[in-house]
Design a protein around this nucleic acid. Structure first.
Lengths: 146, 146
DNA sequence: CACAAAGTGGGGAAAAGTGGGGAGAGTGAG
DNA sequence: CTCACTCTCCCCACTTTTCCCCACTTTGTG
């Protein structure tokens, strides 16, 4: 379980330190790729295994082909150096708009990496906003159950 | 598992370097052929074996005959030189519109090779577009489950 | 306040990618 | 049949990138 928000610097080589609390829970086979709303997502092996159901074959529909190309094309296996850092590829940094600093956020089963501005917009909310969104989700769930 | 996007140059002899990370996972018997949306696809032996279900016979429908001819006719076994490069035939380069540079993309079970312009259209997406497609595929899957 | 753990930054060796020369096989024309 | 030409493949040299290592700073804890 990944919890908490951390702000770390990204050096000129694209390296960023993963918080020690997260790193302890990340075995080899961990993958990082693009995520929704312009963040990067770090998948532990068990989570990544679920995404691998998406494969290319002669029967794969066009939309899934497109998603597979973007998702796997943007992905890299996480390789930690002796200091516990991973390298974000130039593509990944560009997609997420990350330059000198990044927010690293534990979101239960995944870890997300955001740029400053986007995280402020998505992750920070006033109490009113938070309440509204919670109610909205509750409503959707109730509707689906029927 | 093939992950990541690499931009490599194609020299005047049609040679292109396959990223070392991919090469390690490609035993002899690897095949390269044409793929959907104007890319070239590299099949490891296990993946290629699945495509061989497509055979010509007196009961083969017209469309499958056509697909089989194109797919197998365009295919070549990959032969690596000492630097880890393969040669793209003139046909293959023409089909994919590849001249001086190519994008080499790991898509889970296959590797694809694209020209600049086409990859920019298919593989490179803004966060908004990526989010939309991800939601679209998720929605489709949810609908199918019922 | 001292020590340990976590995060940051940079230099250098090794690996990966790029480009071209030239030998040998195959092809076609004289 | 021979010569010239092309194409393929192998080899060598150079450039660029990656990643491994070391040292320093900051944060947190007893």
């Amino acid at each position: 379980m990944f919890l908490g928000t951390y702000r770390h610097s990204v050096d000129t080589k694209g390296r960023v330190a993963i918080p020690a609390r997260f790193r302890e829970q990340l075995p080899s086979g961990t993958v990082i790729s693009k995520g929704a709303e312009g963040c990067l997502q770090v998948y532990p092996p068990t989570e990544w295994a679920q995404e691998q159901g998406l494969r290319l074959g002669s029967t794969t529909p066009a939309e899934e082909r497109r998603l597979a190309r973007m998702m796997f094309g943007a992905a890299r296996e996480c390789e930690f150096d002796a200091q516990g850092r991973i390298v974000l590829s130039a593509d990944q940094r560009q997609y997420a708009g990350i330059t000198a600093t990044a927010w690293i956020v534990g979101v239960n089963n995944l870890i997300e990496i955001w740029n400053d501005e986007q995280w402020r917009r998505i992750g920070d909310a006033t109490p009113e906003e938070y309440t509204r969104i919670q109610d909205q989700v509750a409503e959707r769930r109730r509707a689906q159950r029927t």
